[in-house]
Simulated assay, not measured.
Amino acid sequence: MLNKLHDRYPGSQLQFKKPDFSFNSDLYWFHHEESGQWLGIPVQEVSADSLMVLKTLFEFHDSSIHLAPAAQAWFQYLFSNGDHPSFAKDVPYRLVQFKMSEGEWIREDMEAAFRGFFEKDITILWNGKATGVIIEESKDSLAEEEFLAVSNALESDFFVKTAFYIGIPNKAGTQLHKLFKEEQLLFEQASSFLPAERVLNFEKLFPSLITGQLDSFLKKSLLSRLSLLEEDPELLHTIKVFLQNSSNVSLTAKKLYIHRNTLQYRLDKFTEKTGIQLKDFNSALTVYLACLLIEQT
């Protein structure tokens, strides 16, 4: 019987050996005594109604109870629709999701590495083999470039690639829970729109979401006006980096590892062939959306 449920839930784990619940806080476990099978289903895949039915059919184990009390309260709040933690301070919290490439790394080592980058205490929750969320008070929180440093360090030390999605700070309560659900969906979409980005937030992802939702007429119009960028990948990359760095010539040249004069030549070439002045806000926005659209097609 558990075999059929295993097929129904793509992220589930089926085994005969009793699981170590302390390492599976992201799963609901169900035991079928007659067959000796154990089925672990990701918490986020089980609706409240389905959970109620499964509890009546099988021996149920909620592995989140093996977490420390504070972590358990946060886990129930974020992933199991529980009440917000009673101990939460009246301050904004920031939820930072992370996604790592799977490998031979050990979860405890990875948690220790994470904590080493934060001055204040943080709570780390796992909702998958290589995915989870860091809960931190937003005051004196890490900046975007610091998360990039974390990602680079983890790749250097553990040979694992890590992407972060920095959530919007909010006080614990219904709003924080709702925001987190939205941010989970946004992080999933970021994997297809911006697969190379290591540190994401709503503002960085939103332009890509906009270009992805354009109708065929607007996409065709935008691409036809900026076909030069499709034909010249080097120029496309240059213009995109230039706009991402607030049109700062020195910073862009440094990021591209080219001389300022080389960058200026490419910018002049773009303006000469298109007639578009990148110093104009509306023009810069349009060109940036075109860059994103070309990369998506």
Results as ranks from 00 to 15, higher is better:
Lys4Val: 15
His6Phe: 13
Ser12Glu: 10
Gln13Lys: 07
Leu14Ile: 02
Lys18Asn: 12
Asp20Arg: 09
Phe23Asp: 12
Ser25Pro: 14
Leu27Glu: 08
His31Val: 01
His32Val: 00
Gln37Lys: 03
Trp38Tyr: 15
Pro42Asn: 07
Val46Phe: 06
Ala48Tyr: 05
His66Lys: 04
Leu67Arg: 03
Trp74Asn: 07
Leu78Tyr: 02
Gly82Leu: 03
Asp83Cys: 04
Phe87Val: 06
Val91Arg: 10
Val96Asp: 01
Gln97Ala: 11
Phe98His: 04
Lys99Tyr: 12
Asp109Trp: 02
Glu111Ile: 14
Ala113Trp: 14
Gly116Asn: 14
Asn127Tyr: 07
Gly128Asn: 11
Ala130Tyr: 06
Glu136Gln: 12
Ala149Thr: 07
Ser151Leu: 07
Asn152His: 09
Glu155Leu: 12
Thr162Lys: 00
Tyr165Asp: 00
Gln175Ile: 14
Lys181Trp: 06
Ser191Gly: 05
Ser192Gln: 13
Ala196His: 14
Glu203Pro: 00
Ser208Asn: 03
Ile210Asn: 05
Leu222Pro: 00
Ser224Ile: 07
Leu226Pro: 00
Asp232Trp: 10
Pro233Arg: 02
Ser247Leu: 15
Leu251Cys: 03
Lys255Thr: 15
Gln264Arg: 14
Ile276Asp: 01
Asp280Met: 06
Leu285Thr: 13
Thr286Ile: 09
Val287His: 01
Val287Arg: 11
Tyr288Ser: 10
Ile294Gly: 05
